[in-house]
Nucleic acid binder design. Sequence first.
DNA 1: ACCTGTCACTGACACGTGTCACCTCCCCCG
DNA 2: CGGGGGAGGTGACACGTGTCAGTGACAGGT
Lengths: 344, 344
Amino acid sequence: MSQPTEQSPERSSGRAVPTSADVARLAGVSRATVSYVLNNTSAVRISEPTRQRVREAAEELGYVPHAAARSLRAGHSRMVLIPSSHVPVGPLYSRFFNDFQWALRRLDYTVVQYGSVGLEAEEAARAWAELRPVAVVSLGEVELTGQGVEILKRSGARAVITLGTQRVEGTHALVMDQGRVGEVATEHLLETGRRRIGVVVPEEPGLGMFSGPRLDGARRAAERAGATVVPLPLRYEEESADALAARWRELGLDGVFAYNDEYAMLLMRSLQDAGISVPDETAVVGADDLLLGRLLRPRLSTVRIDMVLGRELAELVDHAVRETDAPPVSRDLLDSRIVRRESS
Amino acid sequence: MSQPTEQSPERSSGRAVPTSADVARLAGVSRATVSYVLNNTSAVRISEPTRQRVREAAEELGYVPHAAARSLRAGHSRMVLIPSSHVPVGPLYSRFFNDFQWALRRLDYTVVQYGSVGLEAEEAARAWAELRPVAVVSLGEVELTGQGVEILKRSGARAVITLGTQRVEGTHALVMDQGRVGEVATEHLLETGRRRIGVVVPEEPGLGMFSGPRLDGARRAAERAGATVVPLPLRYEEESADALAARWRELGLDGVFAYNDEYAMLLMRSLQDAGISVPDETAVVGADDLLLGRLLRPRLSTVRIDMVLGRELAELVDHAVRETDAPPVSRDLLDSRIVRRESS
DNA sequence: ACCTGTCACTGACACGTGTCACCTCCCCCG
DNA sequence: CGGGGGAGGTGACACGTGTCAGTGACAGGT
């Protein structure tokens, strides 16, 4: 019984996908020559007329090299794998990410974002390892265990870089010290004489990675000064903010750090509608320094977060790939400082 | 002169990257058997004890299959390539994108976002083709020419789907009819009796893809009613908005569609600061229905944009891959409708 | 006439995997 | 005793590429 052959690519476009052998045939040379010409191999001398013929043949056939075959032969790739995010991140992060990607490309790496939604940590690591990337830059959304790192390194990854809130064994850890954000905001509130400080904690899933450390940072700062911190769960909805504002007076807070500018704006509106005066009765501080925060009255005070340059991080990746022996670096990515406006 | 061997992966982790041959050796079986066991090939019968031995050997070595070798052998991959964005997109789009990715993964596709920043259209298409994806879903940020599509199809791509503002020959075109957004907003303004309508056009590069069609849509709607449209270039900065507001009265506009809610909020603040009453003197309409727009006073009217479900699009991709012969679909992605609040 | 070089190119192998055709037991039936 | 057949497994090839060693032709020197 002859198995029906799987529908070949030939069928869709009239002819099969051209390989370097096809190019060689058309140009009347060997496949090796084709490879030398198309890769501009400097160690081998090929006459100009032949080069021309090969290039024309490749052009005519629409030849495109097969990346998989290439990296199989080479034994390594120049792919940098970045497990992609499922958290809706802000413009700050988005800009950083584009810079980073662009810089890596300049260094001749191929950047691949790979979605592994809904996989367990080790399972995800295995999926990434299948692609045999030369480096993995994890943004901390999928927690990477020591076990996972081991799998990746065994599969040939020269560098594993975690860009999260905590360091993982065996990786270059680039810590985003979210705690500092909460600390800076709280210190500012303390300086203006506030003593009972609320900290908004978003209820949305997936944000815990950021909000937890920010709360901890606020706690640290408050503890040093003998002040009090009260966590305030909040959903990003008007009803939730109104409900919180309704019981505001019984909480007895004179200051609040609202996770970021968006939550801060939401809460501030509800406070004002409930007759709470900002900043006289309660000071409000956000984070991220969004333009929109400057449009409110009072203008929103915020924590401005300066992220490390994408180019800098790209160079670190490159360095880590080339010098596998070098000890894992571990440095801080963020620089946070208060921007005082009118809401505090 | 012996060429120094390139630093092997063996060096970094103590031993080389294990292959299925290593697993076979350790389990005392042939490589074919390993392949059958690890892929759960149903057509071949392998005894349970052997299966166990193979699995244990694989586990012990930390074996991970080599995706490149696999797809080289198979002649095709299940990779869906999505050229990644460099435009800072909003939460609306971000959510859609995650849904889409998740749905594709459910259908057993591997989603890869591939950054090709700064490449020309055809050059980019060639770079994508190297990966031999089974489908390409272009989000329209890199314009895909007919030439580019040809390259991709010749390289084996079964489906090319463009998700942009205009259709491209040979692709399944999913048009995001941004024009409708401008049309809906303008129609609303006309209904409330406005006759001279400003349309904010962001000066930021990369947004032209959206803003152009929106302006055109506004023009269409105005023309039908014999009303006037005035384009208003604006940078997303307070100074730019203040400058625009300063010469507002000489423009003589009684309504403005501000591209999206963020620009609308920015402009509305400047108008109010300049003593222009909203909506009495000038009505303002945004787009995207951001929560923050509801916090302003007056509350911002907006165009709510409902995007097609990610799952739906994933199914279209799957269908297009399986039935290459089917004619290219071309359908509309967006559904726009006005949400009237207090600013109009 | 013979060796030595250089130029321009080619033949053949390896990378890691999936799969098809074949092979060897061993059991069972006639 | 012969042979049919299934269970369990193996050998070998192909996928497309990069690269090393080698090959023939030709020129130039002795």
